[in-house]
Amino acid sequence: MSTDAQEVTAGVEAKLIPIYVMGKRYDVPDSLTIMKAIEYAGYKYIRGCGCRGGVCGACATVFRKPGDYKIYTGLACQTVVEPEMYLTQIPFYPANRAVYDFGSLTGRPEEIFALYPELFRCVACNACTKVCPMDVEVLDYISAVKRGDIEAAARISFDCIQCGLCASRCFAEMPQYHIGQLARRLWGAYLTPKAEHLKTMVANIQAGRFSDGLSGLKAMSQDTLKKTYQDREMEPATGGEDWTPKDRQYL
């Protein structure tokens, strides 16, 4: 260890606690996350460590505590170790992912049924919800898909990070997270209302309504451009719903 590192840690005596990685005991500082503790113990992540920021879902982990039958879950990069945890990392859990041409779908529930018929083997055991590290009500969105409510499925599954722990625990052997993703895709692409004003705006652009303005901006010197930007009319913080700028030529 370098002298620098010693200086940094001086006076902050890390307390070591025992953890078990795949059955073998290691003593690790108690402030580490599971991911860092496993690395501290000498393991190296080739895959399955992901973003290390609690977002991507690659490091979803299961662990147990001594004398407790329950399975605990969390993201290894976010969960801090506890004494005598039983740990391992599951790099990937195989799950059936249907192949589909998204452009040919239309957003009917039957399209999900045909791609994932195993959905109907759900027994509502709720193991998926219990295991979800993101606290998504997985059973609820699967129930919603079963009754054809794609919007509810999309909304309930919104926080899913596709870690796949639900599929690892499923009695019906289904890939909940892929089904939820398909529901969100269908909902977003086909079932949410279309933004009609966007079409008008695109048509306006194509008709050249903003061409003069844009070429005017492009022709400006850097200083004029800066000044124009700084002098622009801004919506006041107290501006209400019906506020409009004085210059309305592009509205």
Partner: peptide
Amino acid sequence: IIDLPQIAL
């Protein structure tokens, strides 16, 4: 599958 109602599946 598409022809069958959910209750059948």
